[in-house]
């Protein structure tokens, strides 16, 4: 299991890869790093410290740090939901570091919270396939991706793709 120092290194590396900066508020940064370490200890993966993970990885895959919402949030608000990754602008003006709205959809949050850790996982061929109606991108996963990685359409633009619709 990673220590706080390891986690900090991991986060710095991820920020570098994206051209982002890490949280300019040292107290907040310390708490978030601690939260990531706690979550990794609990669930086996570092889920967003400011979100409730389900403990069922299939339901939490969108909120493993760095989460799937990070890019859209840094673009729109200059920071990710937790405030761990920020834009250059917020890095230079830390007073602008303020809580932002939750982009993760309530149905997705609730599905995770209601998931039973013991429930049978879908076998691989049972995992639903989602199709982006805007660009045709296909994703096999429990829930549609929050944002299409190709055309950035939102989750509600995904529909269930039936491989054998005639049956």
């Amino acid at each position: 299991m990673r220590t706080e120092e390891d986690m900090m290194e991991y986060v710095e590396e991820k920020a570098d890869e994206k051209g982002y900066f890490i949280c300019p508020d040292d107290d907040l940064l310390f708490d978030l790093i601690q939260g990531l370490v706690d979550n990794e200890g609990r669930y086996g993966y570092p889920s967003c410290p400011c979100r409730q993970a389900s403990g069922v990885k299939l339901y939490d895959s969108d909120i493993i740090c760095p989460c799937e919402y990070m890019d859209a949030d840094v673009e729109e608000y200059g920071m990710c939901y937790c405030g761990l990754f920020v834009s250059q602008k917020i890095n230079e003006d830390p007073d602008e570091l303020k809580p932002i709205p939750e982009r993760r959809r309530p149905e997705v949050i609730e599905a995770g919270m209601d998931a039973e850790p013991t429930e049978d996982f879908h076998s691989e061929e049972d995992i639903p396939v989602w199709r982006c109606v805007v660009c045709g991108y296909l994703a096999a996963r429990e829930l549609p991706p929050p944002i299409c990685p190709i055309c950035k359409a939102k989750a509600e633009r995904f529909s269930r793709f039936e491989i054998n619709p005639g049956r």
């Binding site: 601690q34 410290p49 400011c50 937790c82």
Partner: peptide, 10 residues
């Protein structure tokens, strides 16, 4: 709150 959340701690 969440015990892991920095904004909750604030």
């Amino acid at each position: 709150a969440l015990s892991t959340c920095g904004w909750c701690k604030k």
